[in-house]
């Protein structure tokens, strides 16, 4: 297994810039998620690494060896040892599961033990080997597609929105199984997704992509705790972005005085508050008050939509347990823990 290095990759289609100055380092054995809204260029990046698309500029290295760019001869896809799991699996419809999985193996190995190993790895029963793709469920098709990609022992595995066509109930289980199989195989993998929950829960590293550029590359907890800007903050998890003023590590905002985490921001700023940082209590003097506008009960937790009184911004608090406030009730708010603040350019003088 090998690392993947992408440096300064750019691509445009018919005059439209799809990718610009992409730098990404995926260490050996790492599962990196490329997270972004549809149309941000993440699939194009994957197809460039796989070798299906030629970049206009930049270098792609697999295990330190350039496969495209840097003045080297471009390596065709079939010589890169890159496994590819496309959207909806794209299994060969004319071949059964056995022939699909062993497709990339040399003829002599197609009858060997590799098929059973692969089925075990993706947690499918051996009995499916003789079925045809149209006889499988969506989740099974996806697992067969992964087994097919892993069978020739690729250097890198690329997954393009592999779970987007699955039911919500299947998605999580299939995602876990795929991540387990990738780790068990020790594979270096890049997963493209628009689902932030999927990216945060499955990946070792998340690269947030926006309009053809990478906005931030970080481990999931760091990404959530210290987003690079307010857009990343609201894209990765829910957040209230409130205008405020920072002095000496404290910010004054619509939710009162909050502690700003390690930051050298001073003056006018935007303050990012996560829903689970907001706690509610019965009205008390000296605290910010809010009215409960709506309550959304999810079972494991509850989202409480609040309007800060008298005419403040709308924020969301997430609380656990079954004790939920009634709609229309007035509560006091406090912010626990540290928040992230982003400095604003100084306002021009009137």
């Amino acid at each position: 297994m090998t690392s993947v290095t992408v440096q300064g990759v750019a691509k445009s289609f018919g005059g439209r810039q799809v990718l610009e100055g992409i730098d990404l380092e995926v260490p050996q054995g790492n599962l990196t998620a490329v997270l972004g809204p549809s149309g941000c260029g993440k699939t194009t990046l994957l197809r460039i690494i796989a070798g299906f698309v030629h970049p206009d500029a930049g270098v792609v290295r697999l295990g330190g060896l350039p496969v495209v760019g840097a003045g080297h001869r471009t390596l065709p896809p079939q010589r890169r040892r890159v496994g590819y799991v496309p959207q909806e699996g794209a299994l060969f419809p004319h071949l059964d599961v056995r022939a699909n999985i062993t497709f990339g193996l040399p003829r002599g190995l197609r009858r060997g033990p590799r098929l059973a190993d692969m089925l075990d790895l993706v947690e499918l029963p051996r009995g499916v080997a003789s079925r045809y793709p149209h006889e499988l469920s969506g989740g099974q098709q996806q697992r067969v597609a992964l087994a097919r990609a892993l069978a020739p022992d690729p250097a890198v595995v690329l997954l393009d929105e592999p779970f987007s066509s699955l039911d919500a109930s299947l998605r999580e289980g299939t995602g876990r199984a795929v991540a387990r199989a990738l780790h068990a195989a020790g594979a270096t993998a890049i997963l493209v997704t628009h689902d932030q929950g999927e990216a945060l829960s499955l990946a070792d590293q998340v690269a947030v992509m926006r309009a053809g550029r990478l906005a931030q590359v970080a481990a999931p907890p760091e990404l959530y705790r210290s987003p690079a800007d307010t857009e990343v903050a609201t894209f990765v998890g829910r957040a209230a972005v409130l205008p405020g003023h920072v002095t000496d590590g404290f910010a004054q905002c619509a939710l009162g005085e909050v502690v700003v985490g390690s930051s050298d921001v001073r003056g006018d700023a935007l303050v990012v508050v996560r829903p689970e940082q907001i706690t509610m209590s019965s009205p008390r003097d000296g605290l910010v008050e809010a009215r409960v506008a709506d309550v959304t009960f999810y079972g494991h937790d509850t989202a409480v939509h609040l309007e800060v009184l008298p005419s403040g911004p709308a924020v969301v608090a997430r609380i656990f347990g079954v004790q939920v406030p009634a709609r229309g009730a007035v509560v006091s708010l406090e912010v626990s823990g540290q928040v992230t603040a982003f400095g604003l350019p100084p306002r021009p003088l009137d």
Binding site: A50, F52, P77, Q78, Y84, P86, F92, F103, R148, L158
Partner: peptide, 20 residues
């Protein structure tokens, strides 16, 4: 897409034409 997948599995253009 099926041809792309075949290439990524290490199968060259001629063999892809024959097998896919």
């Amino acid at each position: 897409m099926l041809e792309d997948v075949s290439h990524s599995l290490g199968v060259g253009p001629l063999a892809t034409a024959r097998r896919v």
